[in-house]
Design a protein around this nucleic acid. Sequence first.
DNA 1: GTCTATAGTAGGATAGAC
DNA 2: GTCTATCCTACTATAGAC
Lengths: 208, 208
Amino acid sequence: MTDTKQRLLDGTLTVLGAQGITGVSARSIAAAAGVNQALVFYHYGSLDVLLATACREATRDRVAAYAERFEAVSSLRELLRVGRDLHAAELRAGNVSVLAQMLAAGQHGGRIADTTAEAIQLWVDEIEKVLDRLLADSPVAEIADIPGLARAVAAAFIGVELYEGVNPEGADRALASLDQLAVLVEVVDELGPLARRALKSRIKKVTR
Amino acid sequence: MTDTKQRLLDGTLTVLGAQGITGVSARSIAAAAGVNQALVFYHYGSLDVLLATACREATRDRVAAYAERFEAVSSLRELLRVGRDLHAAELRAGNVSVLAQMLAAGQHGGRIADTTAEAIQLWVDEIEKVLDRLLADSPVAEIADIPGLARAVAAAFIGVELYEGVNPEGADRALASLDQLAVLVEVVDELGPLARRALKSRIKKVTR
DNA sequence: GTCTATAGTAGGATAGAC
DNA sequence: GTCTATCCTACTATAGAC
């Protein structure tokens, strides 16, 4: 990967973070990268390809950077904790909501949509592994589709990232309330075997 | 409200739904509205104002249209049901994710950000009323900040709307898993007074 | 209120010198 | 690989006729 190609990828993330998808252009990206505008097309052929590549690489990097922390997660509250740390770190780095911006841009098919779906899947896979591990013995696993739950968690996280952009206090409050809720989930999950058996039988009755 | 002003508002929603925020321009909106491009500026002064107005009005309309259904909700599963119906109806109408598109566009302050925050608040207020009612006697109310929870629900819903755009099957699966999860919540919520008291005391212990 | 016309600007993309 | 220069298109916004 030549220096310029990489600078263009970095520049893409910079612009997405600083101005959002509406601020993206070959010129704005090249300016952020400190290179000539024509090089966007020389190296990537089109803006779409550059955007898609930047999204894919950035997501791969972030997922890899957080893989260890995901592996160490041993409760739902910790999973939320990792999510909040991730959120805070991205905020500081200015890389906020790159995925969210790409999602908005990719609502109508095409390369951007495909790439964004793949990028989200990288996160979903990580979350799914964690949920599999955490919920294996839980009543939750009896009734809920874990891969579906992982998708819900990823989508919800992206929604909060976007919400943060227009209402930081509201987003913090939302995350705090989820943390409080996670306490309840853990308490339920730590019920003794007797209560748990009662719970499972009730679940069976309701879902039958 | 003159006919043309209204047509421009409708046209704005059409373009946002069909092409997303990146497809928005005075020309594309005027074309969708079937009016002259210059009228955008005659009636609204700028694109930003038109976008903000359209978002505000559209959200007001949708919230008003669903107010009755929200009032009738008597369980978390029903709340989710209303959300899914809303989601499906907007999908069919092509009005999908107008709020999500505006959120993406409003990530960096300005009129769009303010208007979007206000629009989301309209949904949050409705959700909060429902949660207040549903969770009044629940252990959840003991520990969780209901307004915060309402914000989390609204943000998560928007995230799923966006996810739907790039992965419809994934989004459906996510919503289905939440429905399954809601069963668990209801079962817990319907525990007898004895079990509930035990739960509350455990919660006190954990949160102390 | 609505139209045409247009000034001025920004952006995608390419050609060709170096 | 990188640069300048440029073409062409699309956009915002305004002026002025009707």
